[in-house]
Amino acid sequence: MIDKPLVRRGAAAPARRRSRVAAWAALALLAALPATRAGGEAPVEPRVRELVEKVCAGCHGIDGNSTVPAFPKLAGRHPEYIAFELREFRSGRRRSDVMAPVVAALDPADFPALGAYFGARKPLPGKVADPAAAEAGRTLYADGNEASGVPACAGCHEEDASGGKRFPRLAGQHREYLVDQMEKFRSGARGGPAASPMRAIARRMTDAEVRAVSEYLSGL
């Protein structure tokens, strides 16, 4: 029962790898043509694009698919959630030595446009490194852990982890970033009244559970 998905995943891997290479090639091509890289998406205001290039892209990537695990992927997140987090950083309710000076230099009036920009980028799928952990994570994501009072993550973050206005997209996020945020919720370093459910959840989860669900999500 547990072996089944692993076998299937193994068999499908070469084809998936080929299509991923093709996807990367296509993306590189698009990136070389800045004016058309958005494809069918809404055109980006030059001022917003400049802001993204100067302020955000260095860490989060021009397409919101950060390649550095310390920096979260923003592509495909709900625009309102992105704007909400920018306000949280700006007010200091969400603390970050990296984001604080960056956001302080921004005009809050630009937050919705930045949210709209990254929300419209196409999220790239991630890759599972530890299939066994990912399988355990999938179960936890869908069902939670009743014994310890961990709700199903899918309840708020949606069954496909695409998130929404109030709860962020988690699909494809860097596993290291997810683990780090869970540790910050657990310690209270990621605070603010809005974080009360996540603080409780992080404190009810074991390290192994955090790793498993992060592994699962990073592969979506």
């Binding site: 009743e146 899918a154 309840g155």
Partner: peptide, 20 residues
């Protein structure tokens, strides 16, 4: 209800284990 359904489930069916 989103914040409830992680435990009380979609459709508010709860759980046969009696936890919710």
């Amino acid at each position: 209800y989103e914040v409830c359904q992680g435990c009380h489930r979609r459709g508010a069916t709860g759980s046969t284990s009696g936890t919710y």
